[in-house]
Design a protein around this nucleic acid. Structure first.
Lengths: 104, 104
DNA sequence: TTGGAAAATTAGAGTATGTTAATATGCTGT
DNA sequence: ACAGCATATTAACATACTCTAATTTTCCAA
């Protein structure tokens, strides 16, 4: 093996963690939720309107993001507000925007 | 709707493209290949040894990454060499390393 | 041109994901 | 306690993924 592996190497646990997070983010609706949220928070209803699908569907997607600690939630009266919980995830989303969004 | 959506807004096509790319990268073996490659290139055999699974399995994962234009390939004699084709993808992988890898 | 290494393809089975529709839970105001 | 809105959960079905094992293709060397 004459070449150099792992110039950007990573431990296998890091790989696993990253892959799980990416997988959770790699659904169009979930990614839209994350990009739409940005630094703000929004209620489930707000998100339903923004994304444009059923309440049940959104709730399930939010559950996935919450379970993976990508979103944090806060209950206020009748409503539940979601926000991006981890600043590192926020950073990653910004990077993805730089890579994939043409808006300069 | 009293809050601000889309501080990091993105067009739906951008979201779709990004989600597809993320999905392709969000498998542990594929992510390991990408992180292992970095700026270098490697033959299929090298990758098989590095990742540690069957040739068939690696070839299928490489095919997925190639189809999504995440990897480019080059044939030399008997072997096929793969590398990260898109500098933007390279940038994204670096960002992910910053976010997920503890190595400082 | 034949043998063998390197890589790709195919088929099949098992598992996971995503959607819809229906139902349940929880909270608020009265 | 009750009515009604907001959110979560469940079940069922369809689709997509992933792995293994077997086979095929491609290329080089003798």
């Amino acid at each position: 093996m004459h070449f150099e592996f792992s110039p950007i190497a990573a431990r296998d646990d890091d790989i696993e963690r990253a892959a799980k997070a990416l997988k959770a983010m790699s659904h169009p609706l979930r990614l839209k939720i994350l990009c739409g949220l940005g630094e703000n928070e929004a209620s489930v209803q707000d998100i339903v309107e923004y994304v444009g699908t059923s309440q049940s569907n959104i709730s399930q997607h939010l559950g996935i993001l919450r379970d993976k600690d990508i979103l944090a939630s806060r209950k206020e009266a009748n409503r539940v507000y979601y926000r991006i919980g981890d600043p590192r995830i926020m950073h990653l989303i910004s990077s993805m925007q730089e890579v994939f969004c043409s808006s300069d």
